[in-house]
Computed example of a mutant assay.
Amino acid sequence: MAVVHAVVSVVVAALKAANPTGQSVLEAISLAVLVGVAAVWAAVDGWREVPDRGRAWVLAALITGVGSAVLSTLGRGLFVDQTGAGQLGEALTGGAAFSALLVLLPAGLGLLVGPRLDPDRRAGDDEDEPAPRRKPSPRPRSTTGE
C-alpha cells in the first residue's frame, strides 16, 4: 500500500508541475483510486476470512503512512522537482497521518462488507457450528445415587 500511495503522489505531483491549473479532477480521481484499492483489498481479506485481518490492516495503515511519506519524498526529488530532505519532516507528520487514514478508514469498511459478500457461505456456516457448551453446574454431581 505504501508503494501505491507513493506512486500516485509522485504522478499527481508530476502532472501538477507540468500543468499547475486544472488538476482538481485528477486529485479527486487519485484519492478515489487509493480509497478503492484499500477497500477492495480489505473486502477480499474479509471474504477469504484471513485470520487476524483487523490487526494486519492497522499495521498496514501505519506502515503505509511512514513508508509512503519517505517514498513519495524520494520520488518527487528524483522525478519531479528538487524536493530534498527538508520536506521529509512535513511528509512524516501531516502526509503520513493522511495516508494512514486513507488506508485505515476504507479498510475498516471493507472488513465489514467482505464477510457478507458470499451469502451461501454464511448459510452453510450455521450447520457446521458445534453445539453450544453447557454451563457447568455450581454444585458437584452426587456420587451416592440420590
Results as ranks from 00 to 15, higher is better:
L88F: 05
V58L: 15
V4S: 10
V4Y: 11
E49D: 13
D118I: 00
L105V: 14
A96F: 01
V103Q: 03
E27G: 12
D125G: 11
G54V: 08
G94N: 08
P119S: 06
V12D: 03
S30R: 06
F98G: 15
D81L: 04
A2C: 03
T83P: 00
T93S: 15
A56K: 15
L109V: 15
D120N: 06
L31G: 10
A107N: 02
G75A: 05
R48Y: 06
G46Y: 04
S68A: 15
L111R: 07
D52I: 06
G84L: 06
L74C: 04
V25W: 15
E27F: 14
S72P: 02
G36E: 08
I29F: 12
D125P: 03
A14M: 07
G77M: 07
A85E: 11
Q87D: 14
A56P: 07
A123I: 00
G22I: 01
A107I: 01
V44A: 13
L104W: 10
V44Y: 14
V25H: 11
D118Q: 02
E27S: 13
A61Y: 02
P140N: 01
V80A: 01
S142L: 11
G110F: 06
E90K: 12
G84K: 09
A43D: 09
G145Q: 09
G75Y: 02
R133G: 08
V70F: 13
E127H: 12
L105M: 04
E127M: 00
P106S: 03
T83I: 05
E49Q: 13
A43Y: 11
P115V: 04
D52L: 15
L111T: 01
R141W: 15
T83Y: 08
A60M: 06
V8A: 15
L105A: 12
